[in-house]
């Protein structure tokens, strides 16, 4: 089997890479959130998670290599950029397209199309907020930990970025995974689709709750 990279097939590759990058980002996102939520178990738990992420078990002094986090941040930035670049061509870029979309959505009542519009809107917001997050983390990986993070979030006011980012990213990811599943044929019938749609909503809600709880859990460490 040879991989066929012919230029004629770029749109196939684009579509595929949008799906794949999206799934990878979503998986990372959810893992990331679970890891961060370790703060709910206390400062020690989170410190251990942060250390382990920095591969502390490999270093002699047990402090690990903070640049690993920087690498992860860069990798996510690259992945997200690919995702954005491929997704952009699906968005209504011209005024005429936006007008056509508005007219259609005014005339026709359709739930999944509204979902997609939410995804587009959240996508644009994420595009603005995510670089801030990645820069903050990637440029100062050593500060990650119960106290450093708490200071950043609550004393430096970064919660103003994180809270909206949390909401948008969780909506975007769950809707995205739902759509990717349908797109490649995971739902064999309409009942399965209905179930998947419900699961998608539940996933969004659960992760937003976990996220908000985690943000609040940092509060005690901020002073």
């Amino acid at each position: 089997m040879t991989v066929n990279f012919s230029v004629k097939k770029w749109s196939g590759w684009l579509d595929l890479s949008q799906s794949v990058s999206g799934v990878m980002l979503a998986v990372f996102l959810w893992t990331h959130l679970v890891l961060v939520s370790s703060i709910l178990l206390g400062a020690d738990a989170m410190s251990w998670v942060a250390r382990t992420m920095e591969l502390s078990f490999l270093s002699a002094d047990g402090h690990g290599y903070p640049w690993v986090v920087t690498l992860i941040a860069i990798a996510i930035a690259v992945l997200a950029s690919i995702h954005v670049l491929v997704a952009l061509q699906k968005l209504p870029m011209s005024l005429a397209q936006q007008k056509a979309l508005r007219l259609q959505m005014q005339t026709i009542n359709h739930g999944d199309t509204r979902l997609w519009r939410w995804q587009a809107i959240t996508g644009v917001i994420i595009l603005l907020l995510l670089p801030v997050h990645l820069w903050l983390i990637g440029s100062a990986p050593e500060t990650i930990g119960p106290y450093g993070s708490a200071d950043r979030i609550w004393n430096q006011g970064v919660w103003l970025v994180y809270l909206p980012l949390l909401f948008t990213v969780e909506l975007h990811a769950a809707i995205g995974i739902y759509r990717v599943a349908l797109k490649w044929g995971a739902a064999r019938d309409l009942n399965t689709r209905e179930r998947m749609k419900k699961i998608k909503t539940v996933v969004s809600v659960i992760f937003i709750l976990i996220g908000v709880a985690s943000l609040l859990a940092f509060l005690p460490y901020a002073n």
Binding site: K9, S11, L14, H110, T113, R179, L182, K183
Partner: peptide, 19 residues
């Protein structure tokens, strides 16, 4: 249809399916 105007341009909004 293996292009932006075909299956790879479809965003799976499913207005087609639902109506």
């Amino acid at each position: 249809i293996g292009n932006q105007d075909g299956v790879f341009g479809c965003m799976t909004l499913l207005g087609c399916q639902d109506n």
